[in-house]
Simulated scan of single mutants.
Amino acid sequence: MAASSRSRVIVVIGVILVLVLAFFGARFMNVPQAQSRAVNAWSEVALQFQLRAYLTQDVIDAVKVVNPAQLDLIGALENKRQQVINLPADPHAPFSVDRFRAFMATQDALSVELGKVLDLMQLYPERRAQPPVSTVLARLVQSESRIVVARSDYSRAAEAYNRLVTKAPTRWFADMVEPAARPMITSFDLSTLPGA
């Protein structure tokens, strides 16, 4: 009788262990999916920044229409645009503070120059209203909006992934099955990154 109750206890414990392992295993399976979503969201961020760099040529042409004497601004725009275009695609940037910082510093440098363009356009309302210039400015505003959305989507996806690889109990499974899993950078504020 004691052997019968002992075997029942062992079976119950075994069933509970199998259920617990199945539950945590299913939770761990979310890790690759969450990582894939976050990496895809990062790719969209990089794409939107790249598209803005290509649009910058039209912005340069608009500056030439509005005030061709702005040679310094035109030169800076061309330089920063080329730096962004020449920046190699780096899917590992959101996993590395240094790579992320380099990527965002390049993008931010172009953002500063584009901000100067918008300031310049405020000085010439009648020229800014001309159809070719107004069209380019509208496209720039749309591009900036798409960047904001892409960054927000990425931050949410990276935070969801980070919860899975840094919080117990999924972290334990991630450590056992995929020890290389590491958190992603979630903030685009460079001052909050380590080493700032």
Results as ranks from 00 to 15, higher is better:
residue 125 P to Q: 03
residue 115 G to Q: 12
residue 134 S to V: 02
residue 107 Q to T: 07
residue 92 H to R: 15
residue 150 A to Y: 13
residue 89 A to F: 08
residue 128 R to V: 00
residue 72 D to Y: 02
residue 92 H to V: 08
residue 124 Y to L: 00
residue 79 N to W: 04
residue 89 A to E: 12
residue 99 R to G: 01
residue 135 T to Q: 07
residue 106 T to H: 11
residue 127 R to Y: 02
residue 150 A to D: 15
residue 125 P to W: 05
residue 148 V to Y: 12
residue 140 L to A: 11
residue 117 V to K: 13
residue 111 S to F: 09
residue 129 A to V: 01
residue 88 P to Q: 12
residue 156 R to K: 15
residue 107 Q to P: 03
residue 126 E to S: 06
residue 119 D to P: 02
residue 129 A to D: 07
residue 146 R to D: 08
residue 91 P to E: 11
residue 102 A to K: 14
residue 89 A to P: 05
residue 128 R to Q: 02
residue 155 S to F: 06
residue 156 R to P: 02
residue 94 P to E: 03
residue 66 V to Y: 14
residue 77 L to Q: 13
residue 89 A to Y: 07
residue 127 R to F: 03
residue 69 A to D: 15
residue 121 M to Y: 10
residue 125 P to G: 02
residue 88 P to E: 07
residue 123 L to N: 15
residue 68 P to F: 10
residue 141 V to Y: 15
residue 124 Y to Q: 09
residue 132 P to T: 12
residue 111 S to D: 10
residue 112 V to I: 14
residue 159 E to P: 10
residue 112 V to M: 07
residue 116 K to R: 08
residue 115 G to I: 04
residue 130 Q to W: 07
residue 91 P to C: 09
residue 148 V to E: 08
residue 137 L to K: 10
residue 66 V to F: 11
residue 127 R to V: 00
residue 155 S to E: 05
residue 67 N to S: 05
residue 131 P to Y: 02
residue 102 A to C: 02
residue 103 F to A: 14
residue 88 P to H: 13
residue 90 D to P: 02
